[in-house]
Amino acid sequence: MTIEAHGIAAELPHGWSGRIFRLTGGGATLHAGTFAVALDDSSFGDASTGAIPAGGSFLALTEYLPGAGLEPGVGLFAPRRIPRPLDPTSFSSRKLAHARPGQSATQHFFTASRRPFCLYVVIAAAPSRADRRPQLDSLNRVLTSIRIGPVRA
């Protein structure tokens, strides 16, 4: 099932939940996860990441607004796409916005359609090593489905 709003579209597989929203005065944000994501949350999903079940995954794609030295496609935001597939070794507990046992995260800044974004992905340790690959495969499928277009006036 595809959800689409604010110039972002993503295909969410069966069992995934997600929402695209815009906080007051902010850019667009996509939250998606293998569980029912929180309906009232911050840009990087503080509430949702606190509810990830074992073996679950969560991603936040948050748009930054240009200005005050932030320029699309420059510096931190120079990359032009989301890295796919995700590098398993890029996940670390030190990249968590909120340190939680059993969780690790990765983040990546990029620009698409002249819109600067941060992708923040959190995974909760799978019950077994064998479950890790399907967990990342599922995440990569969702990331591959993401489409970012220009913001409509």
Binding site: M1, I3, E4, A5, H6, L12, H14, G15, W16, S17, G18, R19, I20, F21, R22, T34, F35, A36, V37, L39, A51, P53, G56
Partner: peptide
Amino acid sequence: TPDGGAIKLSLGGSTAA
């Protein structure tokens, strides 16, 4: 959503609140 967003909620899973 009324403010122009979009939502998909999977409520049928064992992890749904």
